[in-house]
Each structure stands twice: as structure tokens, then as C-alpha cells.
Computed example of a mutant assay.
Amino acid sequence: MSISYEEFRSAIHDGARRRALLFRDGRPYFVLLSQQFSREELEAMCDTATAIRRLDRHRDGREFLLGILRGQRVMNLFAQPSTRTAQSFIAGADKLGATSTLVSDIQTSSFAKGESIADSVRTLSSFFDAIVVRHPDDEFATQAAWALHGSARPVPVISAGSGKSQHVTQALLDLYTLNYSFHERGGVDGKHIAIVGDIARNRAARSLALVLTKFNPAAIHFISPGDFAPGDELTDYLRRHEITVEIHDELEPWLRERGREVDAIYMTRLQKEWDAGGEAGQPKQHANTSELGADDAYVLRSEYRLLVREDCVIMHPLPRINELPNEWEQHPGFVVWRQVRNGMWMRAALFATINGAAGEIVARAQRLGLL
């Protein structure tokens, strides 16, 4: 049945209707929104990521994984600069035996000739079994999914970052990192989680907050300059889902008062590349990194280690500029590099889930005594 783009877009933002469009055979097919998954599905993907991680260290397990997606091809269409995310998707697909192609300059593609998104992704679906897209336009991934939803050859579309809107797979790997870090402390439920920095424009920060609505954290604390505080749309959504939200505009006083109770601090940089000056929806280019750094008031200074517990988890979606000094790497709860590697495992788990192989992977890990 045909559906207009406006109807498709409206439906996926309606919790009662989105599942029919974004899932097939009970599995995710189009991955566009952080809030599209249930808690059970999120926990299952975390379990699959752990199974893949452990199988990869086992000789027979590694050979088994390489057969999961053997013969499949993944197109990574990245119209925004990315190293970690693109290579993470490529590595995740590679772990399961798929081959990947990366297009990182759309000026060399038919987009530069004015080809529509619909025609472009339909063409790509002729050659690839999944399309991963990253674009500065908030709507690009949704338009790609809509075009393929009504086509004769649909393939999964996975958003790898949509403008300033969402970064779904970053939220998945961040959740996995939190679960891993809280494994012996009851998981995410009951935890105080602080998100610091540019909440208004940081899609990773907002996506994590949306994923957390599927759990029961004690509270989400947003600490940011007033101009970059979370918008009402986000905070109202969180509160409708019974999440306690606290908003603060100063980091040091909050840490001095509440630092010992916080369980995780998620640092973000000030995203000045989105300041006025970009063209055609592209982020503004800056001459040097000093233009991009956070103000001192939103830097997690090394001396703040005295204000938090040693088991406080320290995360950052990267890249970092000055807001998370290197001295924090000596903190027992610093997990940023684990967080990076978890991106590969979680994206592999997502590919496996989309392809209906998650149960087989977990079962094989159990038979080998790895879980």
C-alpha cells in the first residue's frame, strides 16, 4: 500500500503506528529513532553484542560469525565527516562476514547532479543488502526509508546520524556501555545519569536520553549553558515517560552538591560547527580546534575527580576537544575507549538482529560456554 512521505513521517513519530512501518517479521528493518525499540529488544541487542564479542575471541566462534552475513553487501553513505562511526559500521559488518562500501563524498555521486533521494536509494538497493546513511539533513534517513518502504526491492536503512536530530546507533552503544559498566550494580535502573554540554544540538546526548525512557533511571541531570539546554520537546517527552529530569546551568556547583550520588557522567563538546555560517545545511567549518572548545565552566576539570565516586562512569561520544581532560583516563570509571569499541559490537548486533540471526548467535555462544 502506497503512503505519502508526510504520512510516513507522521506515523513513525506516533508510538502506536511506528512499529508497523519500522519493523518486519518482528525485527527492526528501518532504524531511524532511538525510541523505536522496547526494553526487551534493547536488552536482547545488548546480549547479542556480548555474544558476538566473546565469540570473536574464540577460534571456532570467529569462524561461525563470519558465516552470518556472508555474501551480503552494505553501503555506507556518509555525507557528513565521520571516522569512528563509519569504520565502526564497516568493522561490525566485517565481523559477520559482510562486505562494505563507503561513500564519504556525495559530490562524487549522482546527488551532485540533482538526483532525488528516492531515485538514489532505489538505485543503491539494486546492489546492496542494507544502506547506512549519515547526513546533515534531519530528514534524509527518513526520506530514504520511505522511498524503499514503497519500492519493489526494499532493503534496511540504518541512520548513522541525522542532522541535529538523532544518532540512534550511538545511543545503542552508549546503553550497552552503561549496562556493561553497571553489570554488578543492577543495570541502568535506579541510577543518576548526568549529561553535560551542548544538549540542544548534540544528537548523541538527546538520543541517549530517549533510549533511557525504556528503563527506570533515578534521574537524568542535564548540565549545560542556557542557550544549549534541552528543549521542551525533549524534557516533556521524558517526563511523560515518568523520567525525573533536572536541569542545571552550572557544572562545578552541581558537582560539589550532588557529585557523590551521580553514577555516570556523559560529557559532550560544544558543537560550534552548527553555528551560523554553514551552507546548504552543512556544518560550518572552523579554522582551528580552539574555536570549538567548551567554556571553562563546562570542562570536567581533573580536580573534579575528588567530587565523584571512583565507580562513577565517565563517557564521551567523541570527538572531544577540551571538555574531558586526559587526566580522567586514570579514573577507574573512565570507559571512553571501551565505549568506542562497543560501537563495533553493538552495530554488529544490530545487523544480526535485522537479519534474524541474533538468537542463533546467542545460542552458539551458550553452547561454547561463553555466556
Results as ranks from 00 to 15, higher is better:
185 R>W: 12
143 Q>G: 09
125 S>R: 03
145 A>M: 10
140 F>W: 02
188 V>H: 00
231 G>I: 07
167 H>M: 13
171 A>K: 00
125 S>A: 15
122 R>H: 07
152 A>E: 13
151 S>N: 08
218 A>V: 05
188 V>S: 05
140 F>S: 04
241 H>K: 15
192 H>D: 14
236 D>K: 14
147 A>G: 09
152 A>S: 15
224 S>G: 11
226 G>D: 11
130 A>L: 15
131 I>Y: 00
214 K>I: 09
153 R>W: 08
161 G>P: 01
192 H>V: 11
232 D>K: 13
140 F>C: 02
161 G>W: 00
168 V>A: 07
227 D>G: 13
211 V>I: 14
164 K>N: 13
207 S>V: 02
161 G>S: 12
134 R>L: 09
177 T>G: 09
142 T>H: 14
218 A>Q: 08
239 R>Y: 08
163 G>Q: 02
124 L>W: 01
148 L>V: 08
127 F>S: 10
186 G>R: 10
185 R>I: 09
202 N>Y: 03
232 D>I: 14
189 D>W: 04
198 D>Q: 04
191 K>M: 06
200 A>R: 06
242 E>N: 14
118 A>E: 09
249 D>G: 15
162 S>P: 07
160 A>N: 07
196 V>I: 11
161 G>D: 05
159 S>D: 11
194 A>W: 01
129 D>K: 07
250 E>S: 13
123 T>R: 03
